[in-house]
Amino acid sequence: MEYAAGIDVGSTQTKAVLLDASRAIVARALINTGANVKRAGQTALDTLLSQSGVAKEAVGFVVGTGYGRYKIEAGNAQVTEISCHARGAQLLFPGTRTVIDMGGQDTKAIKVGPEGDVLDFCMNDKCAAGTGRFLAGAAEVLGLSLDDIGEISLRGTQPIRLTSVCTVFVESDILGYVAQKRKMEDILAGVHQAIASRTIGLVRRVGMEAEFTFTGGVARNMGMVRALEAKLDVTLNVSPDAHFMGALGAALFALDHVLAGRSVVPAAADVPAEWVTG
């Protein structure tokens, strides 16, 4: 049996997924990217292999995605995370028409066609305002774990109103509210709402079409899920594998090659999924 791997080297974390030929997830890897991007990609792949017991030679094709995609030495081809999130989301939630991907330094709204194809997308500009980094800054200044702030925010009843989602100024803004003795949960509820408001702007630009699937590392944050749902007035599709969606999409593109019996580059798009799997 042949396998395909997708490795998503993000700004904060590197995610990897190993698929078998039936598109089932055989292994997942999650590590901090750190300063050595090359090593992160390799470590992620090694982790997949050791977890699954699959031999290196059985992995027919590796697709890299994320900002570090060109640094992955084992990568046979590179695809942007925009295409990968669309593809991954469509596999897990076939009704997906809009993907909201929130990562460490990017927030994206992606309009998706019925076959997982990208019809349109919008992202935050060069500034990382309103992304996962903003949440990390808020957690840090409050002395909390990033994993906890979402749950705490859900207890807020009188959210503060942040005037900006600037990742640099978030600390002083929050300290101001701390000095006013505002409750932790209200501060965090306001933080999540501010990001949700900004994200909705991106979603509107590509068009508000259900179903909405929330992907990326921040999708693990229930406070963010609820804040977005409240703003959009819909229920979001959120998979336990939301964090791995880019890697999953990359693995699906890799699987196209494996199933087509081709393990040498040319471009992945030369072998689109529908030609391979019917």
């Binding site: 695809v79 942007t80 925009i82 295409s83 076959e115 194809d117 990208v118 019809l119 349109d120 997308f121 471009a267 798009a269 030369d270 689109p272 529908e274």
Partner: peptide, 13 residues
């Protein structure tokens, strides 16, 4: 890259 990936995919489809 994402833009041209989408264009290419659209053409192939």
């Amino acid at each position: 890259d994402a833009f041209f990936e989408a264009l290419q995919y659209k053409r192939i489809r």
